[in-house]
Design a protein around this nucleic acid. Structure first.
Lengths: 391, 391
DNA sequence: CGCGATTCGTTAGCAGAGTTTACGAAAACC
DNA sequence: GGTTTTCGTAAACTCTGCTAACGAATCGCG
């Protein structure tokens, strides 16, 4: 009956300081013992002992000397890349992209495979993961975590995928197969959420702790970043804004797999193509239609206006609830729309609500979901590897 | 250019442990030194030293003995109530309610005053605060914080109130007057947010870290609690769901002070009264109308159904975005609707979205805003008073 | 009623983390 | 080549917490 909190023993201190030092080494590249002391706030000698400990644990290594200074050349230390690896995977409907990164975050290998011409998608994903690891020169047992990005909801209780309409149902088999071979934690994460993670790391939301990312592609989705962490919701369904009840579309009652959700019906790729046709732009692909409208200059304006008006309904709803400082438009359509679309959405949102979020297009072009998967895996693995002093 | 993190010195340990001990003393009442050791995870002797320190700092005092055990009677210690006080105020349009609590959270005094028959509302609030303090037997300089709950948005940058349509504009004067006399931090907080804080502490959301509270009164509002903390949004406008673009109401463009926001027009008290009249219930007050419908039994069903249908649009929008496990209905109308209304809203939300939040009526009857203000003030003051070992 | 069993609180000695002071050695400056 | 500066390491001390031991108080039981 005693909830016994964590004590607060001296070893906790060491764990905290070690962790802070490692984080600094990752962020600011190789450092000398003295500089590390300054940055952590610790004394020179303590920092020195600390580095020695980390070196013994195999987490840190000498990587050179810093010449040019006044005194003797200072030794430079950095996090040892080989101490752990992670694999991220973007599991799309038609292709699989896997990449392997070492614990410093450097992407060491990348593998792409098509799932179109096979009847064993599990096998494809599986070999992609194994190939990514081996091409990176990483032993399989030094891969500490695999993160798979897919559409659909991740049940926070079980970690399984639910409601992945547009993907085959082999996720469960995939999870089992990978875990069996790799003896490693394997987790799913929603693809839009991963895109947001990537956006925060190196896209349009760098250094912004709170923002939302609106994904406009085949479906519409939303990722919510609060305090630098993803908000998943109690059933993993936070951000499924396809189901927003918006004006202009009948609200389907008795939500089923058949019924088309309201906002998605208004702003999904199908709707974009339809609106484009009405405006005289006929393209096989929604993103192409948007690009065509932008290329058309003034002529394309009305289509973009209409698109922005529709998107703004969903964006306004989320912004009225959350009041984020920043909204990132991503996904095929969001990216294609670029600044032209983002500006229009920003203007439109300001017209119908009190909040005034900045709306910008994604700042990422290459594999946002994959990058997000790697980053997510890294965060978890660093907690494990770097925090092991506590255990 | 060195961002110098907090060091991680031994004194940090002491601060952490002291803080944990104080928190335990507040939560679980008077404790013996030995029990405190168990609960914190510290050794018996360390816990003993710790208590001695806290006693010297005046934060803790002996309050009795625990007889009946095997060995000698153990001394019981508790947080000293008199070491600091806070004042909370519910600033309504027609009356002001102030209360004073000691640092243990015990409410020591409560004062109510009308602002209807005066032309100096600032003075009324001011004297209410001073009276609450003096009736509590608290010196003015031991009141460490005053929290004022009012409608409107609180600008997170300045702390000032904006957009308080239904309240006079003397907030700024109030802030200045109170600060001048009391030499104490005085802060505003949105009334709906405070109601949510109270709900989390002792209402329908006890022990629930994530939930939203929907306020249905003259206006409609929303408070968002995530991880046990309020989410305010970048401009303090998070949860202003009156502005949700919902189906069934024209969306006013060029939002101005005149234009009635969409969702509010659909579900605010005015709308409730209007709907009630259509259903043959004519009451001067929206809450009365709802109560009449419930009292009418089956006859009142259709009105409640319609009300639930309207509310569900707003609730669904927020739940689609946030996916909270729990929605609390509060405010005059929400409270009047009770379980009958909550159940209907829950059912309706489930019909139009994928998420399945539990919807319940408020569990508080007495002064939720005032209680929330006190709790908010307490949290801040405890950080200051208990955390002062660090400084 | 007295003895043993328990538990409270304290004292003594020790271990882990970090700090200040001091110092030898290496590199650069003049 | 001397001076100056800086690196890395000792040595001695402080602060926090831990284990072990112990006197004293209280209850249970014979």
């Amino acid at each position: 009956m005693s909830a016994t909190r964590l004590p607060g023993t001296p070893r906790l201190l060491r764990a905290l300081n070690d962790r802070a030092a490692l984080e600094l080494l990752l962020e600011r590249g190789p450092l000398t013992r003295a500089r590390l002391g300054e940055l952590t706030g610790l004394s020179k000698v303590t920092a020195s002992q600390l580095v020695e400990r980390l070196e013994e644990r195999g987490l840190v290594a000498r990587v050179g000397e810093q010449a040019g200074g006044r005194g003797p050349n200072a030794q430079l230390y950095a996090v040892r890349p080989g101490s752990a690896y992670v694999v991220g995977v973007d599991v799309g409907a038609e292709r699989v992209m896997a990449a392997c990164a070492d614990i410093t975050g450097a992407v060491v290998s990348q593998v792409e495979q098509s799932t179109r011409d096979t009847d064993d998608p599990v096998g494809v994903v599986h070999t992609a993961v194994v190939q990514a690891a081996s091409r990176a020169g990483a032993q399989l047992d030094s891969v500490r975590r695999v993160v798979l990005g897919t559409p659909g909801l991740v049940d926070p209780a079980t970690g399984d995928i639910t409601f992945a309409f547009n993907l085959p149902r082999w996720h469960r088999g995939l999870l089992a197969a990978l875990r069996e071979d790799l003896h490693t934690p394997v987790v799913f994460e929603n693809d839009v959420n991963l895109a947001a993670v990537a956006e925060a790391q190196s896209g349009a939301a760098q250094g912004v702790a709170d923002f939302v990312l609106v994904w406009v592609g085949a479906g519409v989705g939303l990722a919510i970043m609060l305090g630098g962490r993803l908000h998943h919701g109690s059933s993993g369904a936070a951000g499924e804004i396809g189901y927003l009840p918006v004006p202009g579309v009948p609200i389907p009652r008795d939500v089923s797999r058949r019924a088309k959700p309201a906002f998605q019906q208004l702003a999904g790729a199908d709707a974009v193509r339809a609106v484009a046709r009405e405006h005289g732009i006929d393209a096989p692909d929604a993103a192409d239609a948007v690009r065509a409208a932008i290329a058309a200059g003034t002529t394309g304006g009305p289509l973009l206006d209409e698109l922005a008006r529709r998107l703004a309904l969903g964006v306004a709803s989320t912004c009225v609830v959350l009041d984020p400082p920043l909204v990132v438009l991503a996904g095929e359509v969001g990216q294609a729309g670029g600044v032209a679309l983002a500006e229009r959405v920003q203007h439109e949102v300001a017209a119908i609500t009190l909040v005034r979020p900045r709306v910008v297009p994604t700042g990422l072009t290459e594999e946002p979901i994959l990058r997000g998967a790697l980053r997510t895996a890294l965060d978890a693995v660093r907690d494990e590897v770097f925090g092991s002093t506590v255990g």
